[in-house]
Simulated assay, not measured.
Amino acid sequence: MKVFHGVAELEMAVNTHLGYSDWHTINQDQINAFAQVTGDHQWIHVDPEKAVHGPFGLTIAHGYLTMSLVPMLVGQVYDISGVQMGINYGADRLRFPSPVPVGSRIRAGVELTMVKPNAMGYQVTTRVTIDRDGGDKPACVVDMLTVVVP
Rank of each mutant, 00 (worst) to 15 (best):
F4L: 09
H17E: 12
L18M: 08
S21A: 12
D22I: 10
D22T: 14
W23F: 08
H24N: 13
D29L: 09
A33W: 00
F34D: 00
F34N: 00
T38W: 13
H41W: 11
Q42P: 00
Q42S: 07
W43V: 13
I44L: 01
V46G: 06
E49C: 13
A51F: 11
V52F: 03
G54I: 08
P55D: 03
I60Y: 02
A61S: 14
A61H: 13
H62A: 05
Y64A: 00
Y64E: 03
T66G: 05
M72E: 14
M72K: 15
L73D: 07
V77G: 08
D79L: 12
S81C: 00
G82R: 01
V83A: 05
M85E: 02
M85P: 08
I87P: 11
Y89T: 13
G90M: 15
R93P: 10
R95K: 15
R95Q: 04
P99G: 11
V100K: 08
V102S: 11
R107P: 00
G109I: 11
G109F: 10
G109L: 11
E111M: 10
L112F: 09
N118V: 10
A119P: 07
A119T: 15
G121I: 08
G135Y: 10
D136P: 00
P138H: 06
P138M: 12
V142F: 00
L145I: 06
L145E: 02
T146V: 02
T146N: 05
